[in-house]
């Protein structure tokens, strides 16, 4: 599952660089430019991806490490 989440992160970055709507002048709902709505979708996708990452790839257990520098 954790590999799947990292694949999602890479996919998100690839989708962020899309070419499909680069010059699209249409308005969705009559007021949102496609280029803006697409990237609002990317923002929402990022939140979902990071939610999955916190569920399945969390790097630490939630216990607090024993507390307490200079080389």
């Amino acid at each position: 599952m954790s590999k799947f989440v990292w694949v999602l992160v890479v996919a998100l970055i690839v989708l962020h660089q899309d070419n499909w709507f680069w010059s699209d002048t249409r308005l969705v709902f009559g007021f949102v430019p496609v280029a803006l709505l697409y990237h609002m979708g990317i923002s929402t996708g990022a939140a979902i991806t990071w939610f999955l990452a916190t569920k399945f790839c969390w790097p630490l257990d939630d216990a607090r490490p024993a507390a307490s520098p200079g080389g």
């Binding site: 970055i13 280029a35 923002s43």
Partner: peptide
Amino acid sequence: GAGVYGMLASSSGI
């Protein structure tokens, strides 16, 4: 234009 959202905002979200 509208492209700045993708360039500055959704990239920062990721």
